[in-house]
Amino acid sequence: MPGAVRKILHIDMDAFFASVEQRDDPSLRGRPVAVGHAAARGVVAAASYEARAFGVKSALPSVTALRRCPDLVFVPPRFEVYRAVSRQIHAIFADYTDLIQPLSLDEAYLDVTADRRALGTAWATAREIRARILAETGLTASAGVSYNKFLAKLASDHRKPDGQFAVTPDMGAAWVETLPVARFHGIGPVTAAKMKRLGIETGADLRAASLAFLQQHFGSSADWYFQIARGEDDRPVNPDRVRKSSGSETTFDRDLTAEAEIEAGVLRMAEDVWTWCDRAGSYGRTATVKVKYADFRQITRSRSFPAPIATRGELHAASLALIRTVLPTDAGVRLVGVTVSNFAPIEEALPLFGAAA
């Protein structure tokens, strides 16, 4: 009915890549694990919670990670395995709703307003989904439960790992006021630092700022900041559908200049994009890499091929070739993105790089 309160879940797997490796190799359990390579130019793709306790995290150079944690165990990534587990998890989601919006291999929004399995509450639905993920994959997930996507995503991080947290309509706005703006999805480190210079450090500070003030300092993003400071977010959960492109981008925790770190970020975005393309059966002829620098200057590099990019390896190779056209760089990189567009039937696909899927 119009105006009805939606019930939104954000399900986020706990240290997904590293947890899969610990599951499949019992000798790794309880030990600090990094998915990646220990080579001189290697970069951490993902880290277990044991490794995170030492300050090891994704995009960190491997040599730095080893200095922080000398006992760190590196394991090479197995993206095909991670994708297979992700498909298992999304099959579980499909038992509860058709309104599923994947964000990456390890997280998704679900609209469970309809309560397909008659569990009574979104809280009970999240709990059952997490229990099934554990039973069927041996992995833990955390969940955020709320009435919109912004709050659900914030909530899923509140009881990690292996927990869930609900933000109800009567507490949403007040809860947001207690949080640092640096935790808000969509506010990266550069924006958070700018807000701090303007005296905005918490949700309460952001709410106290007028829309005119936010428009003066943040332009087109002002309306979004004004809304989330009040716990408002009207975006629907959008399931996969026919579209003209598939893209993914990430804002780094800090501005990057190291080539290996920038390339690792691009590869992670390419992996997210490939996951969608493979699941949707949509393959594009054009690959685009986007770069945003610390000064917010933005560039893109694209290449179109005679046939669709038909394997993960081809997309990785195309993305790396494009990012390397702007490397090396002395300018800090704050964001990278990868997009595939110009979709065509898969039967037209031919190997482009000779790389395996």
Rank of each mutant, 00 (worst) to 15 (best):
G3W: 10
K290T: 10
I262H: 00
W224D: 05
K244I: 08
D253E: 13
A204Q: 12
L119R: 03
A122K: 01
A45Y: 02
F165A: 04
V291F: 03
T137N: 07
A331E: 13
S319Q: 08
A53Y: 03
G265S: 08
D233S: 08
A51G: 13
A204E: 11
F343Y: 11
P328I: 03
T339W: 01
C69T: 14
S246D: 09
R87Y: 07
M269V: 09
V167Q: 00
E347C: 05
E348Q: 15
A357N: 14
S341Y: 02
K153A: 08
V63I: 10
R183Y: 01
R130I: 01
L151P: 09
V326M: 00
V167P: 06
L139M: 12
F54S: 12
A53P: 09
A38T: 05
S248A: 15
G354M: 11
H10I: 08
D24W: 09
W274Q: 05
R254F: 08
R68H: 15
K57R: 15
V85K: 01
G138N: 10
L352G: 07
S156I: 09
G313A: 09
G199H: 04
I346E: 11
R159S: 14
T97N: 04
L256A: 13
P70Y: 02
A193P: 03
I89M: 00
A122Y: 01
P70C: 08
I228T: 03
D253T: 14
P26E: 07
L198D: 03
F296C: 10
A310G: 15
R254G: 04
A4S: 13
R183M: 06
V242E: 11
P77W: 01
A331K: 13
L151G: 06
Y283K: 02
P161L: 03
